[in-house]
Structures are given as structure tokens and as C-alpha cells.
Amino acid sequence: MAQAWKCSGLRWAADGPVLTWIGGRRSAPARGERVAFAVAEGGVRTCVGARGHACPVRAGVPGRSVGARCEECARLDRAHSVAADTLADDPRPYRVYLAWFGPGLTKVGITACERGSARLLEQGAVCFSWLGHGPLMAARRTEELLRAALGVPDRIPYAHKRAVRTGLPGSEAERAAEIAELHARAVGLGGWPDSLTPEPFRSVDHAGVFGIEGVDRGPAVVGEVAELVAGGAIGGGLVAAAGPDLHLATERGVVVLDTRLMTGWELVSVEGAPCAVPVRELRRAAEVQDGLF
């Protein structure tokens, strides 16, 4: 019987995506390589726990949940989260950034300086620019100032990011134009905290890293995995990766797999696995505009 593994998520290193597994195993799929696995027969998806601790009741979680946590573990996971404003005394320096995911889809955010651009890669930011750096609360106040003054959000649903990714402008300059304009407006605002040091505009483009350069001219994405199911399998050649998503060339066409759907399941390696999991049609940019504007 094949050994079963539990995925703990997709991380980004300087040279590309890395799948991490409970127990310390890591695998770094390269573009062109085949990614294939099956969910154990009779398996049940269980809560992944919180902050390095297993769920005490091994609660079951829905197949379509990208968090893979029960209600109690989700609460505990956010209890010491920068995003939830519960770490006001964090002594680490932070950076404020503008991130662009597609036409009309830009957000402001913060990340610890020590993380570099990892947060932007994990979010699937196609390009970004730093705005400034300083203590956590100064970075947070600046984020709120810019969110209100520039009319940009600090959170964007991932489905929206995925939807606009299929129609990106072809050049780095075109992709950077929107954040360049917002950066210029941001540095011209008053009210920045004195302890927040502004940074000059410099666009960092991830289209090449993700493998989505000219994505509209490559193989068309035909759908996205809706959920994994016990006994189901998927296999395909990796054509692109962005944020938590793997774009796999299957016998049904290119299918997007959100790797967050893998967590909580027992998975086994398979060779010629067909795409035998529920797949839904991928939403396109035009279909999410009402939710964006």
C-alpha cells in the first residue's frame, strides 16, 4: 500500500513554489514536471489545527474550505495574527506595499521586512512596489491612511485574483502603470507617521516567476478544481504557479488547483492519474466586475 502524506501548504522560495508536507518533507515542482496524487480511499478531511498544534477533536472540515480548520482552530489561529491586529507589540520592522493582481485590482498591505517578497508571492501579486518601512503600528496606520485616501482595499478575494489573471497586459511597463500612479499619489499625501520611512517607486514583476507571461497566448484554462474527494485523483504537467495555485495540463485541458484544498487530506502518489475530481468552469474577469467596482 502506498504511503499517505498530508500536505501543509504551498510556500514560495526565491526560485519557485515549494509544497510542504507534515513531517518536514518538501517538494519543489518545476514547470514541465508532472504533479499527480490521489486522495486515500475512504478518507475524511480533518482540521489541520492551529499554530502548530493538532486539532484536539480531529474535526471534519468541508472539502471546499480553503482554510481546512474547524471554527475553534480558526479562531485560535487568528488570535495572534498581525492581520487581526492582535500583535501590536511586535518589535519587528514592517514594510507597506502596493500589490497589483490585474487591471483595476490593486491592494495596500503590510509584511514583516524579514519576509522579503514572500508574502507577495503567496498572495499571487503579479507586480508590486514597496511604499515605506518602519515599526508595526506605523505601518498599520499608513496602510489605513492609504486605504482610505486612495480608495484601495487591504483584502481581495482570491477568486477575483484568479479571474483577472487570464487577461493580463503583455508588458511589465503596462502592468506597473497602475501602481506607479498610486505610489505617486501616496507619497504626496500628508499624515504619514514620522517613524515610517518612505521608499521610492520600484516595480517588481512576478509574471515570469509565476510562468504566466503571455498567459492569454498559452494553453487556455478550462476550469478550476472545486474540491478534492475521497478516492479522487488529479495529475498533469505543471505549466504555471501563482500564489497557492498550480496550473496543471490534464487530459481535460489546463485545470487550476488551489493547493489549500489539499490540506487535511491523506494523499498518495500516483503515476498516470486522470483528472477525477470535481472541476468547475473558471470565472473570467468580466464575471467578477460587479463585485470589484
Rank of each mutant, 00 (worst) to 15 (best):
A50M: 06
G63C: 09
A68Q: 07
R92E: 08
A88R: 15
V57H: 13
T106R: 02
A99Y: 09
T86Y: 09
G67D: 11
G49Q: 06
L98Q: 06
A125Q: 00
L121F: 07
S81I: 07
T86H: 13
G63I: 07
P103Y: 10
S81T: 07
C70T: 04
F101M: 03
V96T: 11
P91M: 07
T111N: 00
D89R: 14
T106I: 10
A83S: 12
H53Y: 12
H80T: 10
F128K: 01
A125M: 04
A112E: 02
R78M: 09
A54Y: 07
T111C: 04
V48F: 03
V57P: 02
V96I: 13
A125T: 03
R95H: 06
G52A: 05
G49A: 08
S65W: 05
R64E: 12
H80Y: 07
Y94S: 07
R51E: 14
V48Q: 06
L76F: 14
S81Q: 12
T86C: 12
G63E: 04
R115T: 07
L105I: 07
R78L: 14
F128V: 09
A125N: 03
L98T: 08
C73N: 03
C127G: 02
R58A: 14
S117Y: 07
C113P: 00
W100Y: 03
V48K: 10
R75S: 12
C55F: 01
V61T: 13
L87Q: 14
D89V: 13
A79G: 13
C70A: 10
T106V: 15
P93M: 05
D85N: 11
F101Q: 00
Y94K: 05
R95T: 06
K107W: 03
K107I: 06
V96S: 02
D85S: 09
L105H: 05
L105V: 14
